[in-house]
Design a protein around this nucleic acid. Structure first.
Lengths: 192, 192
DNA sequence: CGTAAATCATTAGGAGGTTAACTAATTCAG
DNA sequence: CTGAATTAGTTAACCTCCTAATGATTTACG
């Protein structure tokens, strides 16, 4: 039989190996903050899992998580419609990306492009009747699954989590991180 | 002047708009768990910020976060060397990806490929002398920045965070999520 | 043994995102 | 009013990762 090529295997003790590696590395460097690095890696791993989770949910239909995000944004908007650039800002995604996503949704018949009446630079994306119907059907199921997932934490913990994340993001914006200087190797080889 | 095309703008009140949108959406669906969805989106946003953070750090040199991960894995390994597939398992990344990353690192002179003496299927990647020198110079600076970031949380909070993440990931593995049925629109249009 | 199954690295091709560059429309300064 | 700067949407080129498929090697087992 051909190899299933199952992709990244979500091993349960994967994080133990990680920790062991970090400990080894910490012996090679002074002042190696294992806890900080471990937390950062944990976050990245979870976010990768999260992407896989949502992608799997989306793959039932032919659309990707990017498309879902656009649909959600429109569904949550006042008139089920937003300007394309507005969507980009809302989802923190570049405009060329939005263009492509809308293209797909339009050809699926879920969204329509409308010229803005006042500002002729703007193009409005709006859920079609079909798109709205779909979202009314889809969203509750999706939310149920998200709740099932986040139900691993109680309300208090959810609040704590959100708060910690808020502080981390704030720190990312404001802290002054030191740029790396230029690497001047002492040995013979110079970097390509 | 040409548009700077600054990309996704990390607005500070971006999350307020998000929350407002979620509230609007919750009025359109019954049993809409705003807290859960908000927490999930927070996580995804932070992880995106995190990627940007690391990418910016890496961009000082010409390498990407994928390359950095490989270098870190090798640096943390016993003989500064690992089999390619081993790296893939360690980083939870597919083997074709590792092949490409190693290609780049080899042509940068940081890593070398070595045939495994016993198992001729295996290829070992090892930090070159130059690569080791680079990592001894690079890693402490990088860790310092990571510590600066994670310093937004104290040791206790870091532990809590790691624990919550552990539970979320566990839930993702074990919980039984409901697959979506097939969408049967009631109106005239059928999805493309 | 000797054949089937599994594992390894690589290649080719595709999905999803980015930056850079371009045109059109609007806003702002003088 | 007019010219410069900004904002929108699109296109093209690229990057990073993925899946699928292939050839080489090793392991499992009848």
């Amino acid at each position: 039989m051909v190899e299933p090529e199952s992709g990244p295997t979500p091993l349960s003790d994967e994080m133990k190996a990680m920790k062991a590696g970090l400990l080894r590395m910490s012996q090679r460097c002074e002042k190696f903050d294992v806890a900080a690095v471990y937390a950062l890696i944990s976050l990245k791993r979870m976010s990768a899992d999260l992407d896989g989770f949502v992608d799997k949910m989306c793959k039932t239909f032919d659309f990707s998580s990017g498309r879902l995000n656009v649909l959600m944004a429109l569904f949550s908007a006042d008139n089920q419609s937003m300007a394309l650039s507005e969507i980009g800002r809302y989802l923190v995604v570049t405009r060329p990306n939005i263009t492509g996503l809308i293209d797909g949704l339009v050809s699926d018949g879920l969204v329509e492009r409308i010229d803005h009446p006042d500002d002729r630079r703007l193009i409005i994306a709006r859920l079609t009747e079909h798109g709205q119907e779909f979202m009314r059907w889809f969203v509750p199921q999706h939310i149920a699954n998200v709740s099932e997932l986040m139900g691993a934490l109680n309300q208090d913990e959810l609040r704590q989590l959100a708060h910690m994340i808020e502080r981390l993001r704030e720190r990312m914006r404001t802290a002054n991180f030191k740029p790396y200087g230029e690497f001047k190797p002492e040995s013979k080889i110079a970097a390509g």
